[in-house]
């Protein structure tokens, strides 16, 4: 039954109401396209979101969905996943929802390693409230609420996730459909909290925020595609790479005696390397792909194991026995 599903099976009957040209359309399309490949029956899939443009997402997926309150989706998803480990639970959030009002829930769900797929759409702006700066907006950003420029130092979502010891951390871009599809699959296949930052263009309030990474004519010089076991090469002509100069990474040109053998080889299991790559911000190339992937017991599996162990040790719960526990006395 599951194998027979197609992209269309995941399209709900609701009219999609994002602004024309919004990057969210591309993400929705990629998710709907990826879903059938996972082979999970629709009834076992749940999308949970908070508040913001991205959080309308569940209404457009023909699965179970819960559009909740601002920032709390990770906590709501935790309660669901813990009690229903049979479900495939996805959290859809944004840079405001996930990193500002819901920052606390995000870091805790990551450190606990609840088996959820968390898609954080990062457009570096508040779209739904019509254009205030967000916790990922760059310093100096002029918006409606920062006419003289933002003075907030921004979060780097990948560093937040790694700092919270997320077991799976990746980044992709709305318009990179193939790469995004691969990252969705990697997120899906990971057991534990899978954090996927998706750089997403808000063409109304922050158009072109990721132009360097999405403009076909220049993106190859700004994207660093991470592939496990492969050297860090980038550039239109694949002629640039990342080399270690002592403890510092640097961009080098390949040739003139330098070969790919001199470059850093990506290793998803290396947390120190992941932190280093997370620090890459312009003028360094922006890494996309899997920064870090670690297999570690999931919170939901552990809590259910405790329940199963308790049952094996104490037997199934017996209310009568429990009520009669301790000092009881009879009055005749």
């Amino acid at each position: 039954m599951a194998t027979a599903l197609t992209r269309k099976d995941f399209v709900s009957d609701q009219e999609v109401r994002w602004c024309p040209g919004c990057g969210d359309y591309a993400i929705l399309a990629a998710v709907q396209k990826a879903m059938p490949e996972f082979g999970i029956p629709r009834e076992n899939i749940v999308f949970i979101s908070g508040i913001g443009c991205s959080s309308r997402f569940p209404y457009y997926m023909d699965t179970y969905g819960f559009h909740t309150i601002h920032g709390r989706a990770p906590a709501i998803a935790t309660g669901l996943k813990v009690t229903r480990p049979d479900l495939d639970v996805w959290v859809v959030t944004g840079d405001g929802d996930g990193l500002s009002i819901g920052g606390n829930h995000l870091i805790h769900v990551l450190r606990r390693n609840v088996d959820l797929r968390i898609l954080l759409f990062n457009n570096k702006i508040y779209g739904l409230t019509k254009g205030q700066y967000s916790p990922t907006s760059e310093i100096g950003k002029v918006t409606k609420s920062t006419p003289l420029g933002s003075i907030d130092y921004p979060f780097n979502p990948i560093k937040v996730a790694l700092g919270a010891h997320a077991a799976f951390v990746a980044r992709s871009i709305d318009v990179e459909q193939k790469h995004l599809g691969e990252m969705l699959k990697r997120s899906h296949d990971h057991r534990g909290a899978a954090f996927l930052e998706i750089l997403q263009n808000c063409n109304i309030f922050n158009d072109g925020a990721f132009n360097d990474l999405s403009d076909k004519t220049i993106k190859a010089d700004h994207q660093l595609v991470l592939e496990h076991g492969k050297p860090l090469v980038f550039g239109k002509n694949r002629d640039k790479g990342i080399r270690m100069n002592g403890m510092r990474p640097e961009v080098v040109a390949i040739g003139n005696g330098l070969s790919v053998d001199d470059l850093v080889v990506h290793d998803e299991k290396n947390l120190s390397l992941a932190f280093m790559l997370a620090n890459f911000e312009p003028p360094m190339p922006t890494p996309i792909g899997v920064f870090y992937a670690e297999e570690r017991p999931t919170y939901d599996a552990l809590i259910n194991k405790q329940l199963a162990d308790a049952k094996a040790k104490q037997g199934p719960g017996d209310l009568r026995k429990l009520l009669n526990r301790g000092d009881v006395w009879d009055v005749n």
């Binding site: 709501i76 309660g79 669901l80």
Partner: peptide, 10 residues
């Protein structure tokens, strides 16, 4: 919130 999620799941 976690309780709301658990209620959603039954």
């Amino acid at each position: 919130s976690s309780a709301v999620g658990a209620a959603f799941g039954g």
